[in-house]
């Protein structure tokens, strides 16, 4: 399950970023960004999940260890979870996981958690742009990609 490199001919690195978006807020936010025709980099691959708490830490660890350049988890704002409390668990997990990943040598920018509501199409586009910029600056997750 090696991840193919996405560098374009040596000039300019295009990172591969995995994005989990919750069905009720963030995915709708992504939709809004789309129908509003907001421009954003095409580096994020979005996976729709029913709740941000559906994203097991294992997903993040596996993606990063296998060489993806970044992982972003998007959920509803605290208090707005469709399932009342899912994103509160995401929040605790995110805090903990980020520290652990940093400890074993994964740059903190490679794993991010953000809150994007259904009405925040612009915030979605901004998040995509910001994360892409940060990960691009870090360069490829090459030591891990080469470890395949």
């Amino acid at each position: 399950m090696a991840v193919e490199g996405s560098e374009t001919g040596g000039n300019g690195f295009e990172p591969k970023i995995l994005m989990f978006a919750c069905n009720w807020c963030s995915y709708a936010g992504a939709d809004l960004a789309g129908v509003s025709r907001l421009q954003m980099p095409a580096n994020c691959r979005v996976i729709r999940v029913m709740c941000s708490a559906r994203v097991r830490p294992e997903f993040v660890i596996t993606a990063l260890s296998k060489g993806l350049d970044g992982v972003v988890v998007l959920g509803c704002h605290p208090g707005d979870c469709h399932y009342s409390e899912g994103n509160y668990f995401t929040r605790r997990r995110g805090l903990f996981l980020k520290k652990l990943l940093e400890y074993v040598g994964i740059e903190p920018e490679r794993f991010q958690v953000r809150w994007v509501s259904a009405s925040e199409g612009a915030k979605f586009a901004d998040t995509v742009a910001e994360v892409t910029r940060q990960v691009k600056a870090l360069g490829p997750n090459r030591p891990r990609r080469n470890a395949q």
Partner: peptide, 15 residues
Amino acid sequence: PPLVSFELDDQDPFM
């Protein structure tokens, strides 16, 4: 246990 519970005012410095 902390990861199966939460507080409404948990910190989220990077979110």
